[in-house]
């Protein structure tokens, strides 16, 4: 599968996907680590993808999303944003609802 197909496969088959540097327990960048903390604070189920292990997908996703940095959070197949936006949504109290809605739909 080419990288774009794999990206679509990931974001369409998982309600919440975080593309990040490293893993949730061992993030390789402070911004990725911060994003994980907000998702965990919301008690969200999420799939992560370590882009450091896949240079081809790492470059392809930047093109696909018109977003040049990581982390990138996808909910229901749509780009929500990077660290700044995730933080804004968390501070506004919206993030938990978005995540719960996406997770809830997936379970129903």
């Amino acid at each position: 599968m080419d990288a774009i197909t794999r990206i679509k496969d990931l974001i369409e088959n998982n309600p919440v996907v975080l593309f990040m540097k490293g893993s949730p327990d061992f993030p390789q960048c402070g911004f990725s680590g911060q994003a994980v903390q907000w998702l965990r604070a919301c008690k969200a189920d999420f799939k992560y993808f370590n882009i450091l292990e896949d240079p081809e997908l790492r470059e392809a996703l930047k093109q696909y999303s018109n977003w040049p940095t990581y982390p990138q959070l996808y909910i229901d197949g749509e780009l929500v944003g990077g660290c700044d936006i995730i933080g804004n949504l968390y501070n506004d109290g919206i993030l938990a609802d978005m995540l719960a809605a996406a997770n809830g739909k997936a379970r129903a």
């Binding site: 977003w67 940095t69 660290c83 700044d84 936006i85």
Partner: peptide, 27 residues
């Protein structure tokens, strides 16, 4: 939307995001 605003900025900065800028906080 916030995503669209950030995308406008990233587009304007183009190749700078590849080398000179590792992280950009945006308001």
């Amino acid at each position: 939307s916030l995503v669209q605003r950030h995308q406008l900025i990233y587009k304007a900065l183009g190749d700078m995001m590849k080398q000179q800028i590792h992280a950009l906080g945006i308001n």
